[in-house]
Design a protein around this nucleic acid. Sequence first.
DNA 1: GGGTCGTTTCGGTCCCGACCGAACCGTGCC
DNA 2: GGCACGGTTCGGTCGGGACCGAAACGACCC
Lengths: 258, 258
Amino acid sequence: MPDHERTPADHRGSPLAALAALLADPTRAAFCSALLDGRAWTAGELARVAGVAPSTASEHLSRLIAGALLTEERQGRHRYVRLASPAVATLIEDLTVFAETTGGPTAEATAGGSAAGTGRPAPRSLREATRQSAEARARTCYDHLAGRLGVAVADALLDRGLVTDRAGLAVTDRGHAWLSAQAIELPPRSGRPGGRPVVRSCLDWTERRSHLGGALGAALCRAALDRAWVERIGSGRALRVTPEGGRALRELLGVELP
Amino acid sequence: MPDHERTPADHRGSPLAALAALLADPTRAAFCSALLDGRAWTAGELARVAGVAPSTASEHLSRLIAGALLTEERQGRHRYVRLASPAVATLIEDLTVFAETTGGPTAEATAGGSAAGTGRPAPRSLREATRQSAEARARTCYDHLAGRLGVAVADALLDRGLVTDRAGLAVTDRGHAWLSAQAIELPPRSGRPGGRPVVRSCLDWTERRSHLGGALGAALCRAALDRAWVERIGSGRALRVTPEGGRALRELLGVELP
DNA sequence: GGGTCGTTTCGGTCCCGACCGAACCGTGCC
DNA sequence: GGCACGGTTCGGTCGGGACCGAAACGACCC
């Protein structure tokens, strides 16, 4: 079929192509990456981080929402958007991990100004640098913990046999007992496969190691925030471990934070 | 940045956007879907299934290979291509599942001529219809078993307690023993998370149920082909269960095929 | 050697869509 | 009411890229 016979916005009925097209634009991709912190952002904030005019951002958001990747919530004159579901977050993470770990010719294209092969842009200012170091220490990754904190917690759970990687990641019996003892609840499991995994490994860019996501990761992160073990710094994804949090992590998991 | 200031093929250093762009074209998406059967296809075959000129197909293939989604293998005057790794297959599957299960506005766009909400095009000919029914019975899904056969095997493994979905999909101790008894080997596991999962659930479009992928799925499929329990029909992804295969499945797993 | 066939390269066409600025709209604040 | 501000709509510009056909290339088979 010659190009001039195609109908407008025609993905020829390929749902795969239609979905990929949503993420194929650098601006929309930047939006999704920013939203990976699991919080709701306003249209203006996203326009600023992506460096486009508000009008442009508005159009992109409408497309992402129509494509069911994002959901919106209007509040006064603000339009808040967030990722539509944990499934979307997982999808975008998987794609990002693949794109950044696969050598490919993209590697040389990204070469200018990326920090020691991490795929992350080098900081442009002091403000940017301190933000990055705070995020490297502890941050959210959609709905679970990441950064050195996230990796340390994952290591502790594995070392203490609360989670195992023998034959696939899973919570052990001791792990279930420990969770009950801490009054941390996991959502019930349907009999058959499918649905959200209980534990999922999620590659941590700053640490180049895996931390834990899935329902367990989300439950731990929720508990940590509820119990004020960690708190948000500013409006980004960075977290601070509170004094009580440091104590709790040491006593319950033997995690020593630098 | 106005459009006329952008550099050519500029994804502004977004690896995510660059990767998604590879899949955002319906022709390239069709190539990847076809290659999901795990076999090597020639450039001409792919051009035919996607309905484009050979010259067009050639250019698309070059881009997919440059992007590390595909690998090529030249043989005489043929150019064979296949998916570059199980990771690529998983990625494309995940995207496809998400795209087809998310209601979204794509649903109505695909409406014309799709069979009862399966997201699959209705057969256009008798030949097409018999092919589809053969694939619904048994087929490969990249490197593991799918179709009614794949789902039946998955159910049998779960029912017999060789695989469990308690706290995430995993092979049980009994499962490991069973595999040893059948002389089916799983690749060794590295200590820390990451790498290919041992068992993975993979949504089956024809059955609307999950079958088993991952290293276990691949090992089972390899064993089934090696031992002539199943054999390929023609050049597609369809499989036929041999008489010995039917017997083996019944005796070893209690699987009754219609 | 000559024909066939799978593949690639090249030239040319055309349109999608990303972008901006300006105008507009509605909310919230003074 | 009036102003400020976040968001949206609209019109216009421009380039990338998807497509084809023709021609070149090279492997394979008489």
